[in-house]
């Protein structure tokens, strides 16, 4: 099944590596991606199309644990990155 994930992350040079590593390690394959720097807040917007047999929510939660990721949502889903998630 293919899923679309939108996320905002701190614009560190290695941030794409971090995100893509988690996607691969947690059992998903990348189909398509885009990344764009924002003008404000030193952030980047990343959109990933991924496919995999595992539960997409688990990937979403693992990505939300990345310290540099500030916001994440599954397309057609509500944002789940809560303050509690930030704590972990």
């Amino acid at each position: 099944m293919t899923h679309t994930i939108n996320l905002k992350a701190h614009n560190r040079p290695e941030v794409m590596e971090r995100v893509l590593r988690v996607v691969r390690h947690r059992g998903f394959a990348l189909q398509q991606m885009s990344m764009q720097q924002c003008d404000i807040n030193q952030e980047v917007n990343i959109t990933l199309n991924v496919t995999g047999e595992r539960c997409i929510n688990n990937l979403e939660l693992q990505l939300s644990k990345l310290y540099d990721v500030s916001h994440i949502e599954l397309e057609a889903a509500t944002a789940i990155k809560s303050a509690v998630a930030m704590n972990a």
Partner: peptide
Amino acid sequence: DIDPAEIDKLRKADISILG
């Protein structure tokens, strides 16, 4: 748990409490 990513990772929880 304190880590949301542990909830439902391997075993579905009927109730989960984070914090």
